[in-house]
Structure formats: structure tokens, C-alpha cells
């Protein structure tokens, strides 16, 4: 399973490196969302600073939708999904590989957007450990849930419009928990508030990763 996951992740990351969709479209989209929020709230810098964690994670969430859609768009062209089914790869390995590739792209995106949040929103990170733990748990959860629902929508003609409708309500707890934990990291709320939210993010990540490993074969066959 792990060998197949590494092979799959390597393939997806190589495709992204060659096509540069992540760097030329998804990352600029995330930055654009942050800039538009800054335009909208600029008259009151206090509001922008206090809202920075939520705006950051909303931008990540929107960008993650694009990353997941892209991850499955490459499998739709030329019926590559049938090729995957014929490949003999372990479906759990396919899931872990796709989720891993999406997660790595999201982590790079979060790093970039984090820099823009500090520059544009005057955000001040006081607890880097909390930020890293939050980012790690939230990213795994977003990637795992995204790949599960991406596969669910992959066989449908309306997949591009259906995926946000399916995924956004499901990842609402990630948005809430990641925002609250990041608020604590930025000293907007007490530090002690952070860890219960990080634990919630971790539970979400474990649930969706486990579900994906167990259910991906069925999803792949039925898509």
C-alpha cells in the first residue's frame, strides 16, 4: 500500500510540476482572495487583524477545492481513471497517494498565504508551534476529505459544480477549528483555547483518512 501511495503521489506531483497549475493558478487564486478581503476590510485594520485567521482558512479552503478538482481532472482526461483501475495499484494506496500530493500542495500554499497574511493583515504570530500543529492536522483533514468527495463526484458530468456543494459543508468543522486554534496562536484568544481545537482537527483527519483507506476501492469502482 505504501509503495503504491508513493508511486501515486510521485505521479501527481510530477504532473503538477509539469503543468504548473498549482503555481500559476491555484496559488495566485488564494492570494487574490486574501487581497480582496484586504480591500474590503482595509478601512478598519483592527477588524482585518482580528479576522485574519478566519480569512486565511477561508482562502485555504477555496484553494483546496481547486487542488482537489485538479487532482481528479487529470484522471478524467483520456479515461485515465479506467487506467488506474486497470493498473493493479492498491486502491488504499491510490487514496493515500492522491491525498498526500494534495496535502503537500496545500502546505506549500498555506506557507505562501501565511506570508501574505502577515504582510497584508499585520498579523503577528506568537505561537509558531500551534500554527504548525493546526496547519498539519487541518491540511491532512482537508486533503483526505477532499479526495474522498473528489472521487465520489469524479464520475458525474456535473462534478465541477457538485464538489463544492458536497465538500464545503463537510469541512466546515475544519474551518471553525483551524480558525479558533489560529486565533490562539495569534494571541487573539487565550493559548489554552488552542489545543482542544487542534485535537478536533486531528480527530477529523484520522476519521477521513481511515474512511478513505477503507472505502476508496468502492468509490473507485462505482465512480
Amino acid at each position: 500500500m505504501w509503495r503504491d501511495a508513493a508511486l501515486m503521489a510521485g505521479k501527481d506531483l510530477r504532473i503538477e510540476a509539469r503543468s504548473r497549475v498549482a503555481t500559476n493558478q491555484i496559488a495566485p487564486f488564494g492570494v487574490l482572495v486574501l487581497v480582496l478581503f484586504a480591500f474590503a476590510l482595509d478601512p478598519d485594520r483592527g477588524v482585518l487583524q482580528r479576522a485574519a485567521p478566519g480569512l486565511f482558512w477561508v482562502a485555504v479552503l477555496f484553494a483546496s477545492l481547486l487542488a482537489v478538482q485538479r487532482s481528479f481532472a487529470v484522471e478524467s482526461a483520456d479515461s485515465a481513471r479506467d487506467g488506474l483501475r486497470l493498473s493493479g495499484l492498491d486502491p488504499a494506496g491510490i487514496f493515500l497517494g492522491k491525498a498526500g500530493a494534495v496535502a503537500l500542495q496545500l502546505l506549500a500554499l498555506e506557507l505562501l498565504l501565511g506570508v501574505f497574511v502577515v504582510l497584508l493583515y499585520d498579523a503577528d504570530v506568537h505561537r509558531a508551534v500551534i500554527v504548525m500543529a493546526t496547519a498539519a492536522a487541518a491540511t491532512v483533514g482537508l486533503a483526505a476529505a477532499g479526495v474522498v468527495y473528489g472521487m465520489l463526484a469524479a464520475g458525474l458530468r456535473v462534478r465541477e459544480t457538485l464538489l463544492p456543494l458536497l465538500l464545503l459543508p463537510v469541512v466546515a468543522p475544519v474551518l471553525l477549528a483551524a480558525t479558533r486554534a489560529t486565533e490562539a496562536a495569534l494571541d487573539i484568544t487565550p493559548v489554552s483555547d488552542a489545543w482542544p481545537w487542534v485535537r478536533l482537527l486531528s480527530v477529523f483527519a484520522v476519521i477521513y483518512t481511515t474512511f478513505g483507506v477503507l472505502a476508496f476501492e468502492t468509490l473507485l469502482e462505482e465512480a
Binding site: 504532473i15 482526461a77 479515461s79 479506467d82
Partner: peptide, 13 residues
């Protein structure tokens, strides 16, 4: 080995 109407290929690779 299946050679279908589609080639099951990745355009960017």
C-alpha cells in the same frame, strides 16, 4: 492489457 478507445494516458507526463 487493455487498449481501449481512450489511451488512459496523462497529457502532462
Amino acid at each position: 492489457g487493455l487498449l481501449g478507445h481512450a489511451g488512459f494516458l496523462y497529457d502532462d507526463l
